[in-house]
Design a protein around this nucleic acid. Structure first.
Lengths: 321, 321
DNA sequence: ATTAATTACATAATTGATTATGCAAATATA
DNA sequence: TATATTTGCATAATCAATTATGTAATTAAT
């Protein structure tokens, strides 16, 4: 079995490189076939754009053909040596190096376009037609797709998706008490200071949260508790529950755990018949605030709070679609 | 308009190179995403074949992945430095450098295959599915097509085809007398010596060939006579005509002119109601003999000839299909 | 048993591109 | 108007591959 059938799509870069090499390998011989000596195939893109118009600057050419600027500088230098382009055509802006084809260059362009170009065009087109999958169109589509979203981004999203599938959200159990405390303690003491009410809830979640009609959810990744979140019953005419004590281990970054926990908490609240959830946080916790917005929470103001660190309050109306 | 829409298929090499660069560009970042440091993406093909089996030699790996041997030598050197492969595993043949993965290498392979590999596989597959033209399959087809016939060969054939279309076969006219003589004189005096009968026919073709019921055809390429061929009436019970004085300018090599002239002469003979054509030549003129065979002539023997240089005689039976 | 040819590989040189860097010219800003 | 920033490009350094070359080790041929 062929290497690339064994490696799979993982090696698409290598496979493309090899195909490029094969397509390119006898380019020099093709030029010789048309008695074009003294022409390096790598000059072609530069040569082509110069043959279309009057004169261009190095940077303009580089942008047009997708090469780096030094690459074009170098190609132009070589072509100038071969007498095909005229370098440093005078311009108002003395930084610019305006280049254009010489008479010799124009004559060569004419020859290439009249004789070689149609032969190659037809040869490649014949290959495209011999194949059932259109390489030329496929490349164009990939250029577009990669423009929209890089391969890195795509892989990153796929990784997140796979890992979030490996995340399991379970209900609180005594064995998670230490995780519940340490995960919260970690970020609170990192940004603020632990307060009396924190200790109460974190040390005795069953007493302070669950027995009072609340819920705690734990996110397990490969069995390990890496995220927690609580839904605390509120004694308030406006709100049924407060979402609080959400904490995700830095180890679990990029696994969507915050989102999954948030969704699970909201669903739990719905199951409990809640119509509004409240939360408070601090704007320095930007990723958290961002997550709350994504979950559908909206900023409100004017409620008293026992926590010193809270400077933003949000609510989620579960009855609105 | 996009550069490649303007250049057309001529720039398929450049376009492939750019796509390869785009696909490859964030490979390093992808490895980092999986906490794989100390791994260069270019190692992947080598790493992969080593992860499949026990141990391999440098050259075996090179052949398998389509790289040059020095490239593999270098990659192995780098991987050895990173502690992923074990170099110079002892072998009977002391020239061989047998290499295999270390424990660390095996562990890494496991990690890559279990985590990174499926994510990339799916990401690339999603891209393939988002496009309407299947890049992966198209590449495979092109690998096959180029294996069958290189791009150079294809372009060469296309050039020949185009040029043979630009060749015009016309009937002899006095203005072609000098071409008729010089083209023949060129090859005859090059390989042999001009004989008395040559001068007669070449200096006075109208008297010696046409007025005696023969024909002369001239191949014009862009108006210039670059090939000639005569059909000489024979006074023989076995043959109607002799095909002779075929000459093609070396300038016109590869334009199929010999074939086109031969075909035209045969058709002319058919139109004249001939049933058998005769020719004589010399076996040192290999391309000519080859052409005669391709035109359908078959070797015969035992006829007398006025030319010293003839050492092969052939005939074409026009009545046989 | 020599000698010649082949093979396996390392090293060196080259190629065609890239990023990094520095400098002068032009433009924007205080 | 002086200063800071940006632009355009050349040069240098680097990278990932390639061909070219040299040298042991092995195999084939005389």
């Amino acid at each position: 079995m062929n290497l690339f059938e064994r490696t799979g799509k993982m090696a698409i870069g290598s496979r493309l490189r090899l195909l490029t090499a094969k397509v390119t390998e006898d380019a020099t011989k093709i030029y010789e076939l048309y008695d074009i000596a003294d022409f390096s195939p790598k000059w072609f893109p530069v040569f082509f754009v110069l043959s279309e118009n009057e004169a261009k600057t190095i940077t303009e050419i580089a942008n047009e053909i997708g090469h780096s600027q030094p690459s074009v500088t170098n190609i132009i230098k070589e072509m100038a040596k071969a007498g095909l382009v005229l370098d440093k055509i005078k311009s108002d802006d003395k930084r610019r190096n305006v280049v254009g084809l010489t008479e010799k260059g124009i004559a060569l362009a004419d020859k290439i376009i009249k004789e070689q170009w149609p032969d190659i065009e037809i040869s490649v087109e014949n290959m495209i037609n011999e194949a059932t999958h259109n390489l030329w169109e496929a490349i164009a589509e990939w250029e577009f797709l990669l423009e929209q979203k890089s391969l890195f981004k795509r892989v990153q999203e796929q990784k997140k998706l796979r890992e979030s599938k490996a995340v399991e959200i379970v209900h609180y159990d005594t064995k998670y008490q230490s995780a519940f405390k340490s995960l919260n303690e970690e970020w609170i003491s990192n940004y603020f200071e632990m307060e009396e009410s924190d200790y109460k809830a974190l040390d005795n979640p069953e007493e302070y949260i669950i027995s009072r009609g609340g819920k705690i959810l734990v996110a397990l990744y490969k069995g390990e508790p890496l995220g927690v979140c609580a839904l605390i019953k509120m004694d308030d005419p406006d709100y049924d529950y407060e979402m609080a004590k959400m904490a995700v281990s830095p180890k679990a970054q990029g696994k969507n755990i915050g989102w999954l926990l948030g969704q699970a908490i909201i669903n739990t609240a719905k199951d409990l018949g809640a119509s509004k959830i409240y939360l408070e946080s601090n704007t320095i916790l930007k990723p958290a605030i961002n997550l709350y917005y994504k979950l559908g929470f909206q900023k409100i103001s004017g409620r008293p709070t026992p926590y010193k660190r809270a400077n933003i309050q949000m609510e989620l109306n579960l009855n609105v679609k």
